[in-house]
Amino acid sequence: MSDKEIWQELSAYLDGEAADSEGIARLLESHPEYARQFDALRRLSHQVKSLAPPEVHPGFLTRVMAEVAETRPARASWLVRFGAPLATAGAAVIVVLVGAVVLRAVFAPEAPVELAGNGGAVTAEEALFEALEARAAAGGDIDAWAEASFFDFDDATDVSTEDLITGLAAEDWFDELVLAWEADEDLDTIIGALNDYERATFNELLQSYREEGMTI
């Protein structure tokens, strides 16, 4: 094993998670250098654990419950959930499109923008599934997460479907869908909760983002 691998095994051993704890115990007995490294790891762990637990403000619970009292726990309609971002994106698109028509007619899309990437049109179901998957995948990889999160429509001259979905997955409001996904609610259930109008709304939202990215 390399030094790096040994350090990793010592770290896991400290946490009671080593694959071969007996082997590590023997290694520590026979190699003083590794025993010193393990002691250093143990001291470090102790120091971190000794960080004082934070004081919770006495009014914390009251504030949470006050906000909760104003929150409807029941499932909000998709229209309500999509309303704000859709309105924002829609307003931006309208402003941009009007400006584009006035300044340069070429900026105005001649036909409705399709959610089409290299692989062809994307349905709401496919987009939702891919976005949920992308978000879940990015969750384990901060670099990918950061890359997705820093996706900036302002700088975009064109947006691939993949970028669109990744960008969508980085939106705060998308957390609500991710939450359902993470709670092991299956995709069919999530999709099944959409009525025709809500599916159209979801598609419209995706289109709005794409248009915004293409024209700004």
């Binding site: 919770v56 403000h57 914390f60 504030r63 949470v64 906000e67 909760v68 929150t71 409807r72 726990p73 029941a74 499932r75 909000a76 957390d175 609500e176 939450l179 359902a180 993470e182 709670a183 092991d184 609610e185």
Partner: peptide, 27 residues
Amino acid sequence: EEIAQDTFVRVYRHLDRLEPRAKFSTL
């Protein structure tokens, strides 16, 4: 504190969707 508060409020907002398939603390 603000993030912690938001965390609990979000949980409450989605209470109806929560099912005991994993540890609550994980969620």
